[in-house]
Amino acid sequence: MPNSPSPQGGGARARMQRWLPKLVLSPSFVLILFFVYGFILWTTYISFSNSGMLPDYSWAGLRQWSRLWNSWTWGIALHNIWIFGLLYIVSCIVLGLLLAILLDQRIRAEGALRTIYLYPMALSFIVTGTAWQWFLNPGLGLEKTMHELGWQSFSFNWLIDSGMAIYTIVIAAVWQATGFIMAMFLAGLRGIDGEMIKAAQIDGAPAWKIYLRIIIPQLRPVFLSAVVVLAHLAIKSFDLIVAMTGGGPGNSTAVPATFMYSYAFSRNEMGIAAASAVFMLAVIAALIIPYLYSELRESRS
């Protein structure tokens, strides 16, 4: 049955009332169609054109794509996003789940602790990057502090080590997002039917077994949501890297987002930039569309 009221009746007023909803929705819809879908089409076209500094609509086939794929930096960017994404997702989920389970033990100061774990999510990545860049500064930050505390051999210079810099970004990013993932798991834990846990206790299962066998398997939808959200955040991550390392040292912390930005605005290679953006969109779409589809379908029933 249709959900919406469909008032009957003639007259100009009634006809107006029937058109109004669509009229009210249309500005947003037109904006979205133009600025999202129109732009996606345009960028996609540009990735198959000869565009350099200015748009050039002549067809170039896969030229930009092959240039992209042969680019050394793009290879680093892809490699980095893999490492970053994987470590970021796994660490956030492990830590987030751990914190959620610990917080779920009738903790007295739960509210305050939750507030502390979650606050980094309210910060701009630029602020986070600035803070961590300072905190991990080899000359004056953590390393120096440890030396002053008497641990002379302590060394932590990942931020300027091109082999390790990407891991400092993982640390900062995990710091920022874990609280959020914890909140998701906490909500999931609170949604589990308590009677089932009582039943398991009566059956004599120890607490850790109840978690492993009964509670965590029921959190599957939360795991799915967390992976999708984190993967999506990882692919879009740009601000944090710019603020912490600027993509460096060298190109060692380049990711697709910084790659696209520098090709678009510093190197004036629109075609390659467009191709890299289309690639990012394709990856995210492959991740998000099935997820949204299943979420929307569920909410239908």
Partner: peptide, 8 residues
């Protein structure tokens, strides 16, 4: 969407 797709 990754906003890179609409920057240009």
């Amino acid at each position: 969407i990754p906003f890179q797709i609409i920057l240009l």
